[in-house]
Design a protein around this nucleic acid. Sequence first.
DNA 1: GCTTGAAACTTTAACCTTGAAATAAATTCG
DNA 2: CGAATTTATTTCAAGGTTAAAGTTTCAAGC
Lengths: 153, 153
Amino acid sequence: MNLAADRAEAPSKARLRLWLRLLKTTRGIEGVLRERLRTEFGTTLPRFDVMAALSRAPEGMRMSEISGRLRVSNGNVTGIVDRLVSDGLARRVPAPGDRRAAVVRLTALGRDEFERQAAAHEAWIDELLSGIGAEASGRIDRALDALAEEETV
Amino acid sequence: MNLAADRAEAPSKARLRLWLRLLKTTRGIEGVLRERLRTEFGTTLPRFDVMAALSRAPEGMRMSEISGRLRVSNGNVTGIVDRLVSDGLARRVPAPGDRRAAVVRLTALGRDEFERQAAAHEAWIDELLSGIGAEASGRIDRALDALAEEETV
DNA sequence: GCTTGAAACTTTAACCTTGAAATAAATTCG
DNA sequence: CGAATTTATTTCAAGGTTAAAGTTTCAAGC
């Protein structure tokens, strides 16, 4: 019964290998997305992420809501939104009843622009992940979901 | 005939969901690793990555080998190695027979330091991925492996 | 030998990122 | 009310990241 020994040793090694694979895969895909966003739309992944969050919130989002959703620091979002605003894609409006806060919203231009980017983005993902069948996709999704549960999230 | 439309639509959505999950998971884990490397070792993930590459090359690596292995830009590695060198963890030695190039090597201090970091890192990964069993781990690994094959890699 | 093109790096400009400090407004509470 | 605390956001310093441009050296080919 070397099965017992295998069970004791394998998981740690398998996990480290899995992590490196996970990292390599996501970095590879992120790299492709970043490059295409740059060459085809003249934008960046962080900007796309912020616009994606905003596009789901027609009423707008506060800075802290954006940073919370994207799990990045507050100061980070300040700069990205600054650039979005100076490009006419987003707008800061005073938050009603709280003079400290502002609500960020996409402009009409921002919505149009994001529509185009999102359509391309979805097609790219479909292309880049085409190697994974629907069943495998579902299995991975559930496995990672279980993982997400235990983190602070 | 909405079956045809469904077949055309569903996999794409599943893949997009999978991608977002993949991204969330790896970013979450990377965030934990980055924070622990910072608080417990006063270093960063990029520095750890470079040191990990160097630790596998006792003879040292050229700058372009490092950037190629890590799939980051050349200019990027320049800065990271600069800081490693100024901290006494690595050293640039002239490449024999090529005055353009230098070979980067870990110093004795760098090797010691990396040993400690690597041990902690492996334990952290084991902890963070503990929610995934060995079988699931293997399955995900193979699915992502199939994916990696088709990319430029 | 010289010139031309490729290769190995570094530099630069612009952006992203974080954690910590600073500002300012809202809230709590004595 | 007024002080202390908390909350929302920006600013700052240091580092990471890329693509593009610049420098130096090597390798061919004439």
